[in-house]
Design a protein around this nucleic acid. Structure first.
Lengths: 339, 339
DNA sequence: CTGAAAGCGCTAACAC
DNA sequence: GTGTTAGCGCTTTCAG
């Protein structure tokens, strides 16, 4: 019933052809130094000739190491995560690893089952931008039970003892809000994200910045959304308020872009009528209706750092105290805030 | 040196605990029907209790089947491909497959080595949006040599005997150009893509439409680009021509978006000064500076269809004549062409 | 430097 | 229904 694929060349075949043992060939393949120069030559020649490729499944089983790392993100369509994925791949490929990317669709249950699949596939390590609600930590416990190295990215879980790479979300929220204040805005609305460290941190930063500037926090100015579609809806709610906000700070670029659409549709100009800020500096930010001011989170760097830490953890027996890397956010002022 | 992960529960452990053979447990795990009801209960209970997860590496080696399919795309950051990837994942997951996604960076050599990696990993099948130049077919030969099912998407290679799922690129080029002509444009420029079926097909469609409309083909109106950055550059060249084009048709949405940026920067209005069209209907198309008219390629459908065909091919021994699925493009008229 | 022995965790095929 | 035998293709360990 299953499709029959042609038998690939095996170590055994090469060994037989050359009258050497399988072991010797294996050693050559892996580049071990304890093989005679001439034998090595002959083996190498035959390998090239037959275009031998080691069977990684067999190798993984025997070596108890797959050289696969798992990555779980909430949404590959969000280019912030696509960029992280790219950063991870780029960092990890040269080291011989492959990455299996899974999409949790921002759903804790889906994520949980993806983790199980990845564990069953015997990945050597895991990187996750987790969509777990803060109180549910069983996913992480299952990973720890296997004593498998993993690193958290983007969303932080302070109770979980694992390395974390991400931005300082409160700093991001503060930076964005301060920029808006500096642009002369006083009625600053916020499209807040999900109740994860990213959403909460940015919201806190927003409130802190208002506080510092002596602007009273106005509850109705905070609404929730996660992507461009819900950002659009959220902005329409905000536009009905009076006094109408003079700025909208979206928790990520998609929500901000969605908000822009709603604002322009309402016949209000950006930035003169309402200023808009996002977070993420996604690839197309400066191609949007009005080039979007945003906070750059250095997504590629996050990916690379996470990959780095993970690979080091895989390579070393003892688990060191988990490292936390906070990448510095950077303001990118564009036209949507009047620059 | 390698990180020591905890020994996971094995079939053997369960068998020992329950005084049954490994085989029996294996059968229960796989849902075979030839197991006594009571035995099955006991085994299931213990499985749940210990949270047993089959080791897929061992399973793959023994069953000669990994339930992994490989996907190669030129660029995950291009949301057209991200969407395809998502469509494939969604279609294939419920069937028990995982997808390993590789980025070829639009580079034939990278792609070639990715294919080898995937083969070494013993994937059950391959889906590729290939970046091979039309004359280099050795990658496909290597896959065929292993007798591994694969399906081509987006970019077509007529010499390769494999299923193909994609759009009718000539129809796309014609549709876009006809739309522009219908909008009253006569000096229609084209930012053509790479010399693959997508780029060539759309270019041909463009020329065919001009022909039909009795508009002379004007060589300088065709320039080349692949993404937003090069599309921007390409458009700047076009803007220097005289007579200046009154429309620009980009071979994909990113090039069109880049072109829009250049046009607006030059102080020319869209659509009144120059009309713009893209292809792909990427997610953010209607959030761009001027909402972008485009041709929808139904990327998710492409992914699902391809997944479908591949899975069927994996499941059946004999190779049937390769199926070709052409998904119908659809015009999405937005503001950039005056609608 | 080379190789024989043993086994990774599981499944296929066939006996009992 | 259940269990036995024999690997899958490779690496680990250790003896020569």
């Amino acid at each position: 019933m299953a499709h029959t694929s042609n038998p690939a060349v095996r170590l055994k075949d090469i060994a037989r052809d050359l009258n050497v043992s399988v072991m010797t060939v294996s050693k050559v393949v892996r580049g071990c130094s304890d093989v005679g120069a001439e034998t090595r030559q002959r083996v190498m020649a035959r390998i090239k000739e037959l275009n031998y490729q080691p069977n990684w499944v067999a190798r993984s089983l025997a070596a108890r190491r797959t050289f696969i790392i798992g990555l779980i993100v909430p949404d590959l369509m969000h280019s912030f995560f696509a960029e992280i994925a790219k950063g991870i791949s780029a960092a990890i490929r040269p080291l011989g690893y492959d990455v299996v990317i899974c999409n949790s669709e921002e759903n804790a249950a889906v994520e949980s089952s993806e983790v199980d699949r990845l564990l069953a596939r015997q990945v050597d390590g895991l990187i996750l931008a987790s969509a777990q609600p803060p109180e549910t930590l069983s996913v992480f416990e299952r990973i720890e039970a296997r004593n498998l190295p993993f690193v958290l990215i983007d969303r932080r879980f302070s109770e979980v003892r694992a390395p974390y790479v991400g931005a300082d979300d409160e700093a991001i929220g503060r930076m964005a809000t301060e920029h808006l204040i500096a642009c002369g805005c006083r009625r600053i609305a916020h499209i807040a994200g999900p109740k994860l460290t990213t959403g909460i941190g940015r919201l806190n930063g927003y409130r802190a910045a208002l506080d510092t500037a002596g602007i009273a926090f106005h509850e109705p100015y905070v609404v929730h959304a996660t992507d461009d579609a819900s950002g659009y809806d959220a902005a329409r709610l905000l536009l009905r308020l009076s006094p109408r906000p003079d700025a909208i700070f979206g928790y990520n670029d998609p929500t901000a872009a969605g908000a822009m659409k709603a604002i322009l549709e309402a016949g209000i100009a950006i930035p003169s009528g309402i200023k808009v800020m996002g977070v993420g500096n996604v690839h197309y930010s400066d191609l949007l209706r009005v080039p979007l001011s945003t906070i750059d989170q250095r997504s590629t760097a996050i990916g690379q750092q996470a990959a780095d830490i993970l690979v080091k953890a895989i390579g070393s027996k003892r688990k060191r105290p988990p490292r936390t890397v906070i990448v510095e956010p950077a303001l990118v002022a564009r036209e949507s805030t009047g620059h």
